[in-house]
């Protein structure tokens, strides 16, 4: 990592985060949205690792946080896919615009 300035890494993570937010807002497929959310979490992970390397008072905390985030992302994916599967069983669709029973 020596040689790459911190700002480059931050711009990269910001781009990744922006792609994630964009994907979460415009994708129709629920699986696609879940993957976009993973991108957002990983953008935060890159930030945490980069900061722990360059600026932190206690580098270990950032790295531990990142590991916890990876674990949480896995849990969220497990719960999320289970719910998507259950939805597919009753509605036969994974597209957000076809999930429209509840509205005002």
């Amino acid at each position: 990592m020596i040689g790459i300035p911190l700002s480059h890494i931050l711009i990269f993570s910001l781009l990744l985060f922006a792609i994630g937010v964009y994907g979460a807002l415009v994708r129709r497929n629920i699986i696609g949205i879940l993957i976009s959310i993973e991108l957002m979490l990983n953008a935060a992970n890159i930030n945490l690792i980069a900061f722990s390397k360059y600026t932190s008072l206690s580098p270990a905390t950032g790295q531990i946080f990142a590991i916890f985030v990876i674990a949480i992302a896995a849990t969220a994916a497990a719960v999320g896919l289970a719910i998507v599967l259950a939805l597919y069983r009753v509605r036969k669709t994974v597209y957000t615009d076809e999930v429209n029973l509840l509205k005002w």
Partner: peptide
């Protein structure tokens, strides 16, 4: 209806906590 509510809650909640996490990483930095 229960399934649809769950999926909406899941997507909305995950996006919001992802955004909050990004804010936390900046604060940490």
């Amino acid at each position: 209806k229960s399934k649809e509510a769950a999926i909406k809650y899941l997507l909305f909640g995950s996006v919001c906590s992802g955004i909050m996490l990004y804010g936390m990483s900046l604060l940490y930095g």
